[in-house]
Design a protein around this nucleic acid. Structure first.
Lengths: 128, 128
DNA sequence: CTTGACTCTGACATGGATGTCAGAGCTTAG
DNA sequence: CTAAGCTCTGACATCCATGTCAGAGTCAAG
């Protein structure tokens, strides 16, 4: 597929798809015309890129990580063991942030529960 | 305490402490001189801010989340019912942030697991 | 009081991700 | 073939978190 379709299907601006390519995150084929030609699997890849970016990883890190992710989707493993420690570190960062947010949410729940229940929507709040 | 000490104790550049204040993340008292005067609890707050930032949240999101955390430091909460709906929205925001981070973490896990286990610290990663 | 350390505000700079536009070259329906 | 719509590259602009500096005021030890 061409860049327009990939953009539409992922909701990611074409500009960014080109940028990700420039950063080594995507390597679409090129038609004779010069047009980029993406695989079906790139839709997924782009979603992953966005997810990692929003978790605070930068494109350089993602570039190191992505081949591994790819591989998993496929099955063979050229792997990048030298960055695994780094990834574990990143994972911890994320975990700590999650815990932080969960604590905040619990606190918030306490406050909400302490309020007179008679008001507002009786909105079903599942006990987390 | 004044800004220098807070900076030293948190390892966060003074410039950033002022920036966080400007973004509504901190609201230190002011001495007659104009000097900022921070609470002991701000040390903790700053650590939290840094944690959330490094997980990819922006200052605006953190500003929405942080007041809930404050509540804990204070401990009592005079909740006026008209803000309860607001709190529920905050809760939803937090939940969404948590979910996104969890997805990102899952993705990292997939990558980490795909690497040969023989290397790096055998670090006990609990299955979430 | 003086001096050195600290703080204030405001401005300018940077790096990374992202937005936007211009001018030129493809593609494809009609 | 032609027009409308895509796509290409490259440049410039913006936002956000950060760094850095300058000039002026404050504090505290001697």
């Amino acid at each position: 597929m061409r860049i327009g379709e990939l953009s539409r299907r992922t909701g990611v601006h074409e500009r960014l798809l080109r940028y990700y390519e420039q950063q080594g995150l995507l390597w679409p084929e090129r038609a004779a015309s010069g047009y980029r030609s993406y695989q079906e699997s790139d839709v997924d890849t782009v979603v992953r890129i966005r997810r990692l970016l929003s978790a605070g990883l930068n494109t350089e890190t993602i570039a190191q990580v992505l081949p591994c992710v790819r591989v998993k989707a496929g099955n063979l493993v050229p792997v990048c063991p030298e960055i695994v420690d780094d990834l574990r570190h990143q994972r911890e960062r994320i975990t700590r942030a999650i815990e932080e947010l969960q604590e905040s949410r619990d606190l918030l729940d306490a406050v909400i529960d302490a309020a007179p229940r008679t008001l507002s929507s009786p909105a079903a709040r599942v006990p987390a």
